[in-house]
């Protein structure tokens, strides 16, 4: 699992690459810690190359979303595949995040 974070102006983009299963979530929890710093602005989670997400991955997303909400920023989830979209559907995450194709 790999996370690439790039910042341009107030927009921070995190590129998520690989499977975000339980161990991977622990692995990248530091990266998400960092992302909260940018939570006052716009954080784009680019899921173009994200294959899989477990509930621990979803928890990272939700924590970031809560931090953004408290700081007045926003989190955009970009380009999720169909499998992850159905998981988002099952958990109600479609309503919590701004989804971009």
């Amino acid at each position: 699992m790999e996370v690439k974070i790039t910042t341009q102006d107030s927009v921070t983009t995190a590129q998520l690459i690989g499977r975000l299963d339980t161990p991977a979530s622990q692995e990248i929890s530091g990266d998400f810690e960092n992302l909260t710093k940018y939570a006052a602005g716009t954080v784009i989670l680019d899921c173009t190359q994200l294959e899989y997400i477990s509930s621990s991955g979803l928890r990272l997303f939700l924590s970031l979303r809560k931090a953004a909400a408290s700081k007045g920023g926003k989190v955009i989830v970009k380009a999720i595949n169909n499998e992850i979209r159905s998981v988002f559907m099952m958990t109600g995450f479609l309503n919590l995040f701004e989804i971009q194709d």
Binding site: S55, L58, R59, L62, S63, R65, K66, A69, V87, M90, T91, G92, N95, L96
Partner: peptide, 24 residues
């Protein structure tokens, strides 16, 4: 059961696992 209709501010971080199991 988690309430998936709550807003982000009110959502618990946990409880998603068992919810997903029931869903799937």
């Amino acid at each position: 059961e988690v309430d998936i209709t709550l807003s982000a501010e009110d959502r618990e971080i946990g409880g998603l696992g068992i919810h997903l199991i029931r869903q799937i």
